[in-house]
Design a protein around this nucleic acid. Structure first.
Length: 306
DNA sequence: AATCCCAACAACCGCCATAGT
DNA sequence: GACTATGGCGGTTGTTGGGAT
């Protein structure tokens, strides 16, 4: 037996709201508030609507300061950045965009932004040297994986990975690692990483880093040409592509200075101890962006790139 | 002008978390 | 602790309008 419906569906109006209904709802809420009970509200307001429907209508369209219309480039960047970080948690993303609703952002993502991004990150061309699916690898014994890489950390594993051949870019991924099954939604980040084709996972004593490689940042398309990432805030996206997860906390890695270069594998260059030290000393901002010391970053870049 | 197709978006559905009893 | 009611959320569907044919 299923759950009882929240209202008598036979006796409630459905479909688009009329201006009269909007006016009734708006007037009632402005005068009396919601009373903390949406289920009872429609009857009190004289509406033949389900309480949930009233709530949605109010939250998405009628309440004050709702912003409709075109999303700005800044808003695009924020959405992309947050999606890469926390996934499809629209209500949280909406909280960062005053006047925008979760429904609005969700629709915008599904109809426009996703396509934009897919244009930036074309369907993956598999690299021959990449073998196992990270998701399988991270959820099974590392020794049983077909890893082709050789990170030498004492108790860490390092997988070079490739999406399954049927992968189309943004489909759900079963991330079964205990680290990744924390409250933080990492699937979405993984999806973007998948879309980015090339990414790595390192697991080092509860310190797990994943992200795209430097090569991916140039984003070669299938015909060998490069597509510009700037148009859609590539830097922001790129900055999201290294995630450190320790325990059930997630951090995003940013290099501290104004460097155009990007560090391929933070774990290799900074080392797990340095990363852990920074986490433990609170070297991150409110958004859990983990910033490395500028000099250290510069040294690292000088050493490895110049 | 009629029809088809598709993108956009409003609204609904069902699940989950939580508070109250 | 079990149960119920409700709110909140994300995924999905239905409707509509505009452009293409």
């Amino acid at each position: 037996m299923g759950r009882a419906p929240c209202c008598d569906k036979a006796n409630v109006k459905r479909g688009p709201w009329s201006p009269e209904e909007d006016a009734k709802l708006k007037e009632y809420i402005e005068k009396s508030g919601t009373g903390g009970n949406w289920i009872a509200l429609p009857q009190k307001a004289g509406l033949k609507r389900c309480g949930k429907s009233c709530r949605l209508r109010w939250l998405n369209y009628l309440r004050p300061n709702i912003k409709h219309g075109e999303f700005s480039d800044d808003e695009d960047r924020i959405i992309c950045s947050l999606f890469a970080t926390i996934g499809s948690r629209w209500s949280i993303i909406a909280a960062q965009l005053p006047g925008r609703t979760d429904n609005d952002i969700k629709n915008y993502w599904n109809t426009k932004l996703k396509k934009k991004l897919m244009g930036v990150f074309p369907p993956p061309q598999r690299k021959s040297h990449q073998v196992s699916n990270v998701l399988q690898a991270s959820s099974s014994s590392p020794s049983s994986s077909t890893s082709t890489s050789s990170y030498q950390g004492s108790s860490s594993t390092y997988y070079n990975t490739t999406p399954p051949s049927s992968f189309t870019g943004l489909e759900p991924i079963s991330f079964t690692s205990t680290l990744l099954s924390s409250n933080y939604s990492t699937n979405a980040a993984a999806q973007l990483l998948h879309a980015h084709q090339s990414y790595q996972v390192k697991d080092h004593n509860n310190l797990l880093i994943f992200g795209s490689d430097h090569q991916a940042a140039s984003c070669s398309s299938s015909d060998g040409s490069s597509s510009s990432l700037n148009e859609y805030g590539a830097t922001d996206l790129q900055n999201c592509f290294y995630n450190v997860i320790e325990g059930n906390q997630r951090f995003m890695i940013s290099n501290g200075g104004d460097f155009n270069a990007w560090i391929e594998n933070p774990l290799d260059y900074y080392g797990p101890e340095e990363i852990k030290r920074l986490i433990s000393t609170g070297s991150c901002n409110n958004n859990n962006h983990l910033y490395f010391d500028e000099h250290k970053t510069e040294e690292t870049l000088q050493t490895h790139y110049f």
